[in-house]
Design a protein around this nucleic acid. Structure first.
Lengths: 117, 117
DNA sequence: ATATATAGTTACCTTTTGGTATGTACAGTA
DNA sequence: TACTGTACATACCAAAAGGTAACTATATAT
């Protein structure tokens, strides 16, 4: 999995949460604790199934989230945060706070359907 | 400059500090306060001139850093942080802390020549 | 037999990002 | 006259990331 030559721990962290949708997915998981595939698709309207699966798989492989499969038909799969995923929370919060402040100062509009809490 | 449809303030922040070398550049600027082009090349051995200029220009355009040109020959240009750039510091610190902790847990080696302080 | 619901996969394409190598400008110095 | 130091720019290429559209599987309900 992870085996690049990182110049700095910052790069490692960026590698793990830098995907286009990862912040949003993690944020919803912090909020709801447990989410299913379809629920995430509804919470993140513009994401596609492919991107959702892709980002979830990467975060699972990196040990940020947990994937639990129930052997049922139709299938049921639940996603939740691991301790490493939980520990990301303050970073997300600070990035959101900084972004809000910056956007206010620069008059940038964010098409944001979610709130911080 | 910034005019994408962001899904979340997190994405905006990521857009501004997500470049391959931006964290490292910002970190050195936090440390040294003022840096010249050549000094940064020496501090970040694996970066190329092109990438350094590119990342600096983007951050300048986004208002994270300041570029001061002295009309001399040979040229002298100094880079420093703006208030928005300064405000990024706690995010960098948390990302570094989280990355260090994660790397320890997963036995990932980071070829890191810099220290946190 | 057909449709439903859920959670995917796959092939293909476009855009973005990062990297290599080389060229520019210009006053001062040997 | 050629070389140095500083801070770039530019053309070109390769790799990574992201996106679109269509296809899959299976028990149950109609």
């Amino acid at each position: 999995m992870i085996n690049f030559p990182f110049n700095c721990p910052f790069e490692l962290t960026l590698e793990l949460i830098g995907g286009k949708w990862k912040g949003l997915i993690l944020w919803h998981l912090h909020d709801k604790k447990v989410l299913r595939n379809g629920e995430m698709l509804r919470l993140i309207p513009r994401i596609t199934q492919k991107m959702l699966t892709q980002q979830l798989r990467e975060m699972e492989e990196n040990g940020l989230i947990r994937r639990v499969i129930y052997e049922q038909v139709p299938p049921k799969v639940e996603y939740s945060l691991t301790p490493h995923g939980e520990a990301i929370r303050p970073i997300l919060e600070m990035m959101i706070d900084w972004g809000v402040e910056y956007a206010r100062d620069k008059n940038i509009v964010i098409a944001c359907t979610q709130e911080k809490d």
